[in-house]
Every structure is written in structure tokens, then in C-alpha cells.
């Protein structure tokens, strides 16, 4: 499988504290990676560094190109943890928000029929078609989050970078949301890197886990993650909780957890 994201020796600090220290990994096309770790472990910072929103030591390559040279942003869909405009009265309609996810040509401000079709497809995928003409700030936070997911999907990206996207969603929307991501990954081969604490719902779709706590503590398949007593011991209580959760929700691929006596 071709490499989609390659991070090498990433180091980043806020003021004096190192938030990321020597983080290196490769994500291949079609991977569905769950990025987990304790609060303050550097997960969101890692995503920001990958997208160039924060400058770090080390290198990031997208589709084999250095981040600084990378121009093909339409291949990437991004959804942040919180909408930066959640509290604002920004005068913009839902369809205009989703339209922002598409690329555009200079001096060409008119919306083409093809673009509009893509916008409505993305709205339909996220069950937000009914809000298309409404003003964005009139929607609830959960509805806004679904619209922002439509914006991330509208360019039909090859990679989705999602930062705790389900935090503002109700239980039913959350299930639909993760089923949609699962379908995009399995049917269209979309590569997904997702920060989540919700390993119950998302656990059945994820193929790999990446555990970051300032450094890359674990990166491997779900089977390796669930199977290894050594991994669980090394990762501590947080990882054990995640493994237990996967097991209890029936998403542990081996059907058991390290606490039940499985050894490497």
C-alpha cells in the first residue's frame, strides 16, 4: 500500500514543555487509525503539526511530498474538535459553509452546477440536507458539527483527519456518523486518522491504533493492541481501559482482553 502520511522525528513544544517528542510513523492508504491517549498527551497538536497549522521540528510528508511543497489539499478533509465559529453570528448559509470545502479558481466566484451537486451530496451523506438554506449559526452545536463533516467530505478526499468529531453528537447521530466513516473507509478506501475517546462505537471499524502520550508509545493493528499483555502493562491504566472497552462492546477482534490471561 502507498504511504499517505509520513512523519519523521516530530518534536514540538509550547513554551518550555515538550508536547511531542521524537514522533515518527507512516500511515498507508486505506488505513483507519484511531489516535488515542490521555488528555494533554499531544493528540490534537500532532494533527495540527501534520496539517501545518503548527510548526514543529522534524518532517511531514503527504503523498510523498514535503508538507511545505504540498499543494493538493483537496485530497485532505479536516474536521476540528470545536467549530471556531460556534458562538459567532457569522452571516453564512449551511450550503455556503460546505461549499468552502471545495477548491476554487481565482476570478471565478460563481458556483457551478457540478459543485452544487457535490455540496448537496455531502449534505445528504451527513443527514443535513434539510438545513441547506438555513443560517449556520442558527443550528445547534451537534447539527453544526455534522455540517462541518459535510464540508470535510465535499471534496471527496482521499484522507480524513478528524479531531474528536463525535464529541457534540447525540447517541443516534454518533452511530450514523461512525457507520458513515466505516463505509467511506471500506467501500471508497478513504484513509482515516481519527482522535477519539469513544472506542466503543468506533472500535468496530478501526484497523490500527496509535497511542500518543508526548511520544509515540504504540502504533499497530487492533489485534496487536488488544492482544498484548505487555502492551497493556506498558501503556498503563488508560490503555487498559480502552482495551476493556473494546472487549466489553464486542469490538476486540480476538474476543478477549489481556485481563483474561492471553499472553504474547
Amino acid at each position: 500500500m502507498p504511504t499517505v502520511i509520513e512523519a519523521s522525528r516530530l518534536r514540538f513544544r509550547y513554551e518550555r514543555a515538550w508536547v511531542l517528542d521524537n514522533v515518527s510513523f507512516k500511515i498507508e492508504s486505506g488505513d483507519y487509525v484511531g489516535l488515542i491517549g490521555p488528555n494533554g498527551g499531544g493528540k490534537t497538536t500532532l494533527l495540527k503539526v501534520l496539517l501545518g497549522l503548527e510548526k514543529a521540528e522534524g518532517s511531514v510528508r503527504w503523498f510523498g511530498q514535503e508538507l511545505g511543497q504540498f499543494k493538493d489539499w483537496q485530497k485532505i478533509g479536516y474536521l476540528a474538535q470545536k467549530s471556531p465559529v460556534a458562538q459567532s453570528r457569522f452571516p453564512i448559509s449551511v450550503e455556503e459553509v460546505v461549499f468552502m470545502g471545495l477548491g476554487f479558481e481565482r476570478f471565478h466566484n460563481r458556483v457551478s452546477h457540478t459543485d452544487l451537486k457535490k455540496v448537496y451530496e455531502a449534505l445528504s451523506q451527513t443527514n443535513t440536507l434539510a438545513y441547506a438554506k438555513r443560517v449556520f449559526h442558527d443550528l445547534s452545536v451537534g447539527q453544526q458539527q455534522r455540517v462541518l463533516l459535510a464540508r470535510a467530505l465535499v471534496s471527496q478526499p482521499e484522507v480524513l483527519i478528524l479531531d474528536e468529531p463525535s464529541a457534540a453528537l447525540d447517541a443516534s447521530s454518533r452511530e450514523d456518523f461512525f457507520n458513515l466513516l466505516g463505509e467511506l473507509n471500506s467501500r471508497r478506501g478513504v484513509t482515516i486518522l481519527l482522535i477519539t475517546h469513544d472506542t466503543g462505537e468506533v472500535g468496530k471499524h478501526i484497523s490500527k491504533f496509535m497511542y500518543v502520550d508526548k511520544e509515540l508509545v504504540f502504533y499497530g493493528t487492533k489485534q496487536e493492541f488488544c492482544h498484548s499483555e505487555k502492551v497493556a502493562a506498558k501503556l498503563g491504566a488508560f490503555a487498559q481501559h480502552t482495551i476493556d472497552h473494546l472487549h466489553n462492546t464486542g469490538h476486540c477482534p480476538l474476543g478477549h482482553c489481556p485481563g483474561e490471561g492471553v499472553s504474547d
Binding site: 497549522l53 465559529v85 457569522f90 453564512i92 468552502m100 477548491g103 476554487f104 464540508r151
Partner: peptide, 21 residues
């Protein structure tokens, strides 16, 4: 007029605007 969509995107959501190039 020339940078209308850049201006609107950057004002609405600067990090996302960055990821659109």
C-alpha cells in the same frame, strides 16, 4: 473581489482555510 472566497474562508474558520491551501 479577487480574494473574496479567501477572505470569507479565513474569517469564518482560519485553520480549515489553511487546509484548503
Amino acid at each position: 473581489i479577487v480574494f473574496y472566497r479567501d477572505l470569507v474562508s479565513a474569517s469564518f474558520d482560519a485553520p480549515f482555510a489553511h487546509t484548503r491551501g
